[in-house]
Design a protein around this nucleic acid. Structure first.
Length: 618
DNA sequence: GAGTTTGAAACT
DNA sequence: CAGTTTCAAACTC
């Protein structure tokens, strides 16, 4: 890897890059083996958040303003600059180590609480849990000289940032009544004065100091161990922007907590409380300690990419590499880290179209009544996170595909209005068994309902490619009365046209009709009434989906909105149609997952079911 | 918000 | 596998 031209190029750009890539890989490995099994991925995937940070990272070094605008706090810019300056003055060895860390935390996991915790520990309590870069930095006299002044001013400016917010932290264990900023500064100072270079592992005495400048890898590994074992609470705060120098402290945290928590804390209200829900319901302390993987997914739930749920949720971030196979936890975790992996591999992160403001809008959409919840849920779902589902099941115990949550492969969360719900982590066994049973009946039961039409489909000459729209409902609808113009119709609901697989009667799907006929102007004039209805529906959907990121890119319909006039332009994989209607519900699936590949692979391997059997009953 | 309609899922 | 029932979301009033 280090011989590659890319590496050389990166190396010429910055001393950080080489180290970064190395450790990202380590991180992934570490996480892979540290992960715990779980039935579902956390209901609310995190890739969006993750990708957001990944994207930010790409530009962060060039423009610190990104930080300030993103978090609405201009103070970070100056601080980051200060830190950068400080970093430049460090001993090269230290700089290198710091630089390595510098990159990683950029990915989005930072925590003032964790930071303070570390600071406290390093200040002489003897309770080292981690080796952290704090100690590394203390190696140089230069650091001695320059750190205090810079940090002092920095901390004095932003001491309010050092706030304990992490729910993961046992505050009693770190309840020293000290000003966090003081702690932090003191810890650094002490570390520097003592030239503490030890790689003390948690529970180990400081018997064998290790020079991290010569063994940075080991230090990092130890950090990884500590994190992977759940010893280091991972919380992400704005503090990350302040700590250009010490960012490495939490550089892998994003893997455990992929976003969402920060916003939630800002809101001081779990809008997607499945994290707490799941945590609480598990009631498993040991789990909490070692469960980083579980926690992370949960916490980030609301910021997730529109998932396909369950383990399949993970595929939204890994479609490039993963096949839809038997969903396994390892897949999940693989997916969880995929964002990083992609980034590390130079693959652009997933589109970061999630808008914080939009998210906050949704946060405010906390439901109060089941009925309203239902509709609001849809808004949220439409907006950008299908995994953020809410169900209202009363009789199915949320263990049937009737249940949206279950069908989506996610646990029910607090906002759900379900009764006698079994779709909870504490009923993991039941969920697994039920799921297995359902899959035995229909191996595709948990696969995405809508598959994305793509060039690949056209290439293979699949029937899909001949149908009106490029995206297809997997099994087609069976509408008889709705004319495929209501959300009763799964095709319409998914924002895709009906296809030959559909058994619908009187199909008038605005996204593409079953018979493949285009919707000509004439036809639309004839169906003006219907069109108006559709327009209203779409308009409604448009305004009801604040998180729908695609709409920001693709205008649904022009001001005088009309549904797609030519099915060939609808959602074309090659053409960026401006007429793609607001994808009501599952559209996010095919927007993010190249599911045709997944499905075809899956079918080839697993399924005896023939999809192209329009006259057959499911 | 209650009641109705609808079609998918589940069952027989 | 066709017909029926159950279910929850979508929809209407």
């Amino acid at each position: 890897m280090q011989d590659s031209p890319v590496f050389s190029f990166l190396n010429s750009l910055s001393p950080i890059k080489p180290v970064k890539s190395t450790h990202i890989t380590q991180t992934i490995n570490s996480l892979t083996f540290a992960s715990l099994p779980s039935v579902f991925t956390s209901p609310h995937a995190t890739s969006l958040r993750e990708s957001r940070f990944l994207q930010r990272h790409q530009i962060s070094d060039q423009s610190n303003a990104e930080f300030s605008t993103d978090d609405g706090n201009m103070v970070y810019t100056d601080k980051t600059e200060k830190l950068d300056e400080y970093k430049e003055n460090l001993d090269p060895r230290v700089s290198n180590i710091c630089a390595e860390n510098y990159n990683v935390v950029e990915y989005g996991c930072s925590s003032s609480s964790t930071f303070i915790q570390i600071a406290e520990e390093s200040s002489g309590s003897g309770l080292y849990r981690d080796e952290m870069s704090l100690q590394v930095i203390s190696q140089t006299d230069q650091a001695k000289e320059s750190a205090p002044s810079d940090w002092e001013s920095l901390i004095s400016d932003g001491s309010d940032l050092f706030t304990f917010e992490s729910p993961n932290i046992d505050r009693d264990a770190y309840s020293k009544p000290v000003d966090p900023s003081t702690i932090f500064y003191t810890s650094i100072k002490n570390a520097i004065q003592n030239e503490v270079v030890s790689g003390k592992r948690f529970g180990q005495a400081n018997e064998q100091p290790q020079n991290l400048s010569t063994q940075p890898e080991e230090a990092i590994d130890m950090t990884e161990n500590a994190e992977a074992s759940g010893l280091i609470p991972c919380e992400k705060t704005d503090f990350e922007h302040v700590t250009g120098l010490y960012r490495g402290v939490r550089r892998r945290c994003l893997v455990f907590e992929l976003g969402g928590s920060r916003i939630k804390r800002l809101d001081n209200n779990d809008s997607c409380p499945d994290s707490s829900n799941m945590q609480n319901s598990e009631g498993n302390t040991s789990s909490n300690q070692t469960l980083a993987p579980t926690k992370l997914v949960n916490d980030s739930s609301c910021n997730a990419f529109p998932g396909i749920g369950l383990h399949l949720n993970a595929l939204t971030t890994t479609s490039r590499r993963l096949l839809v196979g038997p969903t396994s936890f390892s897949d999940n975790m693989h997916a969880s880290t995929s964002g990083q992996e992609d980034y590390a591999n130079g693959i652009p992160p997933l589109e970061d179209s999630f808008q914080e403001s939009d998210y906050m809008e949704n946060v405010e959409m906390n439901q109060t009544s089941p009925k309203k919840k239902s509709r609001r849920t849809e808004q949220v779902v439409e907006g950008g996170d299908q995994s953020c589902k809410r169900c209202n099941c009363k009789k199915s115990k949320c263990l049937k595909l009737y249940c949206e949550c279950f069908a989506a492969g996610v646990y029910c969360v607090e906002p759900c209005a379900c009764i006698d719900c079994f779709n909870k982590p504490i009923h993991e066994d039941t969920v697994l068994a039920t799921r297995k049973q359902i899959e035995s009946r229909n191996p595709l039961a948990f696969t995405p309902k809508v598959i994305k039409g793509s060039d690949s489909l056209s290439e293979i000459g699949d029937d899909f490619s001949k149908t009106p729209a490029s995206a297809r409902h997997k099994r087609g609808c069976n509408c008889k009365k709705s004319g495929c113009l209501k959300k009763y119709c799964e095709c319409y609901q998914s924002g895709v046209g009906c296809s030959i697989n559909c058994r619908c009667e009187g199909c008038k799907n605005a996204f593409g009709r079953k018979d493949g006929s285009s919707c000509t102007d004439h036809e639309f004039e004839e169906d003006e009434t219907e069109t108006n209805e559709i327009e209203q529906s779409m308009d409604s959907a448009l305004h009801a989906t604040p998180l729908n990121t695609k709409r920001k890119i693709i205008e649904p319909f022009p001001s005088k909105q009309k549904p797609p006039r030519s099915s060939s332009s609808i959602g074309s994989s090659s053409g960026k149609s401006n007429f793609f209607p607001p994808p009501p519900k599952f559209s996010q699936h095919f927007e993010t997952v190249n599911e045709d590949e997944l499905l075809s692979d899956f079918l080839e391997l697993n399924s005896p079911i023939k999809l192209s059997s329009p006259n057959r009953k499911r």
